[in-house]
Nucleic acid binder design. Structure first.
Length: 494
RNA sequence: CGGGGCGUGGCUCAGCCUGGUAGAGCACCUGGUUCGGGACUAGGGGGUCGGAGGUUCGAAUCCUCUCGCCCCGACCA
């Protein structure tokens, strides 16, 4: 017995998450309060997120740039709501080179103020628009309570910033990028998301409207996985971002900003992983398959390693992210547990019998409905030919990817409650720990939203887009009984 | 910032009440036997007990102060 088992999700979801992140060597707490060190296993996931999202941004016409970490404090206060929203969580640099600075510099919590200052210099006429830009960066928000990946004082993210000639164009861009996020969540992270509009209380400080993608974690709490803001002319007016229009008049530009962060890694963990450890969607797994050679005698060792190496080299040359585990101080069983903990989607076992048969055994990290069921209490074992191994890896990867999304959708639907009749009923639901997504009518009054938050800890995650709404829209506000203005989703959230 | 808990080899923790300058399991190193679901065995290396001050012949242990971390709450991606 080497390692003890993880705390299970049922025992303590929060402890399960923390143990998993550390034991799978994704990240750990740094010597600096609230900041995390992202280890290679975790950073590899982020790198794949970056690569794939970056391609999607470029395919939609955006370019990357980089703006500075430090922002003059005065910039922050130019937009009234913005400063109010971010002031409490700013880290401020007051000294440089041993001397007190004339004006303190804040470490960016987000870069609107710096970026629109620069955009203002670059834009004179309508022909200079649109500007479609993105940056990959770190930001700092001095959070009171932190959790690895989900909320840390410093985090990595991308922030897209655009400037447009018209309000309609800005709105189109805002929704387009929300769509990109949704596509990425579903196709790469295998996380089903609900798109929708934030209420005023959850809106980005300084935005006209904030749209979001919301996902349900395994404890039925919501995770805001990405946001896309229509900033209107709030920042262009604050930063004097003007252009001369087609009619000759001077106008303020229309801006959008949108971002996702390393929080997505936390979302992937909390959506798919199980009591054995991390489960990763193949498309974002730094290692898609690990080869474990098995042998007893020296002769077996030689032939098995030769075959395993051949397979390894062939798969690498074909571009598969595979690893081979040749450690000789560990039994195969111990290796299985370790790679399962680390979330590798496919395990390829190769022993003397396989070498003789020109086959390997592939064990998928989760059960695939598309394959023959395993014997009770056992894992699925798939015997595949060495000759067609790359096809098998491709097929199994996409089956596993699809299975994860399917499982996540099923779980979300099973924990979604529509048609709640009374507020008491909803209170009852949220008092029971498990949580849910509760669809209900709302009269649009922020005071009601605040009251419910106070009494249940649940908040309005979003006003869902049409495709997510109930077939029959709730006619009345669940709390007041007045005519409902919107159907909204209530949930506890991270 | 309020409430709770904790700082002792890399990790998890015991020792503290009833002071006598450290101990276990895991991990690590070396050898042998093992290896298709968490191996066994023999030997070995590594800590001055978060920090500072105090009491004492003597402090991981008692006292004071301090720093940090974790959990719960208010705030948030």
């Amino acid at each position: 017995m080497a390692e003890e088992k993880l705390t299970t999700r049922a025992q303590d979801f929060s402890a399960w998450y923390n143990e998993l992140v550390e034991r799978a060597q994704l990240a750990e707490h740094s010597p600096v309060r609230g900041c995390m060190v992202i280890r290679p296993n975790g950073y590899g996931i982020w790198e794949l997120i970056q690569q794939n999202l970056d391609k999607m941004f470029k395919d939609t016409g955006h370019e990357n740039a980089y703006f500075p970490l430090l922002i003059p404090q005065s910039f922050m206060s130019k937009e009234a709501e913005h400063v109010e929203g971010f002031a409490p969580e700013l880290a401020v640099v007051t000294h440089g080179g041993g001397k007190e600075l004339e004006e303190p510099l804040v470490i960016r919590p987000t870069s609107e103020t710096m970026i629109y200052t620069m955009f203002a210099k670059w834009v004179q006429g309508y022909r200079d628009l649109p500007i479609l830009m993105n940056q990959w960066a770190n930001v700092v928000r001095w959070e009171m309570r932190t959790r690895l990946f989900l909320r840390t004082s410093e985090f990595l993210w991308q922030e897209g910033h655009t400037a447009h000639e018209t309000e309609a164009e800005a709105e189109e861009e805002t929704l387009k990028m929300l769509g990109v996020y949704r596509k990425f969540a579903e196709e790469f992270m295998a996380i089903p998301v609900i798109t929708g509009l934030k209420t005023d209380s959850e809106r980005f400080a300084g935005a006209l409207r904030t749209y979001c993608i919301e996902a349900m974690m395994q404890d039925n709490k919501a995770l805001q996985a990405g946001t896309s803001h229509n900033l209107g002319q709030n920042f262009s007016k604050a930063f004097d971002l003007k252009f001369q229009g087609r009619d000759g008049s001077v106008q303020y530009a229309w801006n959008t900003s949108w971002g996702v962060s390393t929080r997505l890694v936390g979302g992937i963990i909390m959506t798919h992983s199980d009591d054995d450890g991390l489960v990763l969607p193949p498309r974002l797994a730094p290692t898609v398959a690990v080869i474990v050679p098995i042998f007893k005698t020296d002769e077996e060792r030689a032939s098995v390693l030769e075959a395993a190496d051949a397979i390894y080299n062939e798969m690498r040359s074909k571009g598969f992210r595979v690893k081979i585990d040749k450690r000789d101080n560990m039994s195969p069983g111990a290796k299985y547990y370790e790679w399962e903990l680390k979330g590798v989607p496919l395990r390829i076992e190769i022993g003397p019998k396989d070498v003789a048969n020109k086959t390997v055994v592939i064990v998928p990290r989760i059960t695939l409905d598309s394959r023959e069921a395993a014997k009770p209490g056992r894992k699925q074992k798939l015997f595949v030919s060495m000759d067609t191994l790359s096809n098998s890896i491709e097929e199994l990867s996409s089956e596993l990817q699809a299975q994860l999304l399917k499982n996540a959708i099923a779980r979300r639907e099973a924990n979604t409650i529509r048609g709640v009749k009374t507020y008491e009923e909803m209170k009852e639901i949220f008092s029971k720990g498990e949580g849910a997504f509760v669809y209900a009518g709302w009269n649009g009054d922020p005071a009601i939203e605040a009251k419910v938050k106070e009494e249940t800890k649940a908040t309005i995650r979003c006003i869902p887009d049409a495709e997510f709404r109930s077939a029959v829209a709730p006619a009345t506000c669940l709390v007041t009984g007045e005519k409902a203005k919107h159907e909204v989703i209530w949930s506890k959230a991270y």
